[in-house]
Simulated assay, not measured.
Amino acid sequence: MKKVGLFLFILLLALLSIFVGVKDISFTQLFQWDSEQKLVLLTTRIPRTVSLMIAGSTISISGLIMQHLTQNKFVSPSTAGTMDSARLGILVVMIFFPTAPLLFRSLIAFLFAFGGTLIFLSLTRFLPSKNQVMIPLIGVMFGNIVGSIATFFAYQFQLVQNMSSWLQGNFSTVMKGSYELIYLTLPLLVIVYFFAYRFTIAGMGEDMSHSVGLNYRQTQLLGLSIVALSSAVVLIMVGSIPFLGVIIPNLVSMRYGDHMKNTLWITAVGGSIFLLICDVAARIVIAPYEIPVSVVVGVIGSLIFIFLLLRRRTA
């Protein structure tokens, strides 16, 4: 019953996302199927809705993996320097390979994101693991350092405006023929499902992993590779979405526990639902104009994040 309810809710939000926009399209007019409606639906509305659902699921699951691998509820690609490192990689491509295809950009962004995440994990080994706030705080500081380096070189090569506008979380530019790379994250989500039990054990610590015969380092590298590649693809396609990878896994964990295989699909659906709601709100707040969805997610997500911090402190 729970699965049916979530499925119907996300279907309703997807339909709402398709019909909300500058161009008015009513459900009754849909069956007339004139050329203008066909162009709007197939070129922009449907690709945008699909991208929202995939991006929401991918970011949420990436956060879930990071939280298991670091044993910290407040770690995600946006608080571990992963996204900032990928942004630096994209800047390198823009400077040295300005005409490179998207796949090459994704590869370089993945390598930088993976390297940045490994550096963050190396830093966490010198920190007390029981301090749940200190580790993501160090991650944010590390990400700011990487971001400052990227901004410095962006100023040097006069790419600040180009980079900031391109990497801001926004789905208004998603169109048919320019978003399909995001489908690359779908097989990654399938891999996560098959390795979910291993990630759950890894989340119990290195000693527990060794006691049950699990190769902790290999599992950690696999998880980080999935997170880095997913983050790079999402960043290139739709930009940076803050807080989503932190709040959704935490909200799901509060209700359904920490067994990853049981909560994986709920986390994915929850991320899609949250991002769909924020994107629809971004389109109607100052209609007919719209604001970047990252702004709406940042406002709502920050409030939820503060609630999670206060709850963790009083627990």
Rank of each mutant, 00 (worst) to 15 (best):
V20M: 10
V233H: 02
P242V: 08
L12A: 14
L303Q: 05
I145V: 15
V133Q: 01
L91H: 06
M1R: 10
F305E: 03
N262Q: 14
I286F: 11
I10M: 12
K23W: 09
D84E: 15
R311C: 05
Q220S: 12
L15N: 15
G223M: 02
S240P: 03
I95A: 11
L30G: 05
K23V: 15
S165W: 09
P98H: 12
S17P: 05
F194S: 09
V295L: 13
D84W: 01
S225P: 04
T82W: 06
F120E: 01
F152S: 14
Q161G: 14
F274Y: 11
N250V: 01
A150T: 15
V295Q: 04
V269E: 06
D258P: 05
L12M: 13
H210V: 01
N162W: 06
L308I: 11
R313C: 08
T219H: 09
L235G: 00
I138K: 04
I248M: 07
V296I: 15
F152G: 03
L39V: 14
S302H: 04
L221E: 02
P187M: 10
L303H: 09
I241A: 02
S253A: 13
S294K: 05
F307S: 12
R48C: 05
I135P: 01
L8R: 07
K3F: 10
K261W: 11
L229Q: 02
N262C: 04
D24P: 00
V140L: 15
K130N: 14
L91V: 06
F74N: 00
I138N: 00
T267I: 01
T219F: 05
P128T: 06
G298M: 07
Q71Y: 01
R312H: 14
I46H: 02
L11P: 00
L118P: 04
S78P: 03
G203Q: 05
L309T: 01
S60K: 02
T44H: 13
P101H: 12
L123N: 08
R198T: 03
L224E: 04
A100W: 08
S85N: 09
P242Q: 11
V40W: 08
T99V: 13
G21A: 10
I191N: 09
L181D: 06
A315V: 15
L103I: 14
R312A: 14
T49V: 14
V22T: 15
